[in-house]
């Protein structure tokens, strides 16, 4: 997925009527799609989770806009629930978000045109999270290169602002839900990640890491409360990486690489 940048078809000259605004609005429109809808359901779940954890509406909407990475937000709320200290919470959130760096690295060469200013890229990088990244990587080939920042600005800002509204709405409505529906709302977060983590794994080791992480989370929760997330991440992640190295050594030809395509 990262190596197709050079294989792009030659850009057609866009008609003069197609301004940055046109492409911004096309980016906005791209949000109204199945991945966009699934993301909304995930933020409905997040709002339910944050509400149960005792966060206020303002704090949850603020967190959604300023963090804008659902795994990081779920880890942060988990740390709040567990009463973790600020450094422990920050460390766990940072560990859960390292993946943002390679995602941005992969996206930048696709998005950058000759005259793009660096501050525009730094600003737009805040919108990078799984859904906007997948949508952008899919759509960029149909967008003229010098319009891609405008397109991504429309896509990213709409997803962020839209889901901030979704979180606020859920807070206003959730207190009126009957208990089983409130439970179903809370359940949205785990089931969303159960499916999206599996689908977004780039290699088999990602699936191993997911299964080991699922098993070790509750175990470490009982063994080392307060450090359960860090312990599970390092131990289960380390073991699955070790498995990856062993498999690579036995299969030096590299046929295992790209044994999975991203589910779309």
């Amino acid at each position: 997925m990262s190596e197709n940048g050079s294989a792009r078809p030659v850009q057609a000259k866009q008609p003069p009527s197609e301004t940055r605004l046109t492409w911004y609005l096309r980016g906005v429109r791209r949000c109204f799609s199945v991945p966009g809808l699934v993301l909304v359901s995930a933020f409905i779940g997040f709002a339910g989770l944050a509400r149960e954890a005792g966060l206020t509406l303002e704090q949850s909407v603020f967190m959604t806009g300023i963090v804008w990475a659902l795994p990081a937000q779920v880890v942060l709320v988990g740390a709040v629930l567990a009463g973790n200290s600020l450094p422990a919470a920050a460390f766990a959130v940072a560990l859960s978000s390292v993946r943002l760096a390679p995602m941005v690295v992969a996206l930048m060469p696709e998005m950058r045109a000759e005259k793009t200013r660096p501050w525009v890229l730094y600003l737009l990088s805040h919108f990078v999270a799984v859904t906007s990244w997948v949508l952008a990587m899919e759509s960029f080939r149909h967008v003229p290169r010098d319009m891609r920042t405008a397109y991504y600005a429309g896509l990213g800002s709409t997803l962020v602002l839209g889901n901030m509204c979704v979180v606020a709405l859920v807070f206003l409505l959730a207190s009126r839900l009957p208990p089983p529906l409130a439970a179903a709302l809370f359940f949205l977060t785990p089931i969303y990640f159960l499916t999206s983590l599996w689908g977004s794994a780039r290699e088999r080791a990602g699936h191993v890491a997911m299964v080991l992480g699922l098993l070790s989370g509750p175990v470490f929760h009982l063994l080392v409360p307060g450090f359960d997330l860090l312990a599970a991440g390092v131990v289960a992640g380390g073991l699955s990486y070790g498995w990856h190295r062993l498999r690579k050594r036995r299969d030096p030809g590299g046929t295992m690489r790209n044994d999975r395509e991203r589910a779309e």
């Binding site: 880890v75 560990l95 990602g206 997911m210 992480g213 289960a236 992640g237």
Partner: peptide, 9 residues
């Protein structure tokens, strides 16, 4: 990616 996936799992 392994550590991040395991942590979220």
């Amino acid at each position: 990616r392994c550590v991040a996936t395991a942590l979220v799992a």
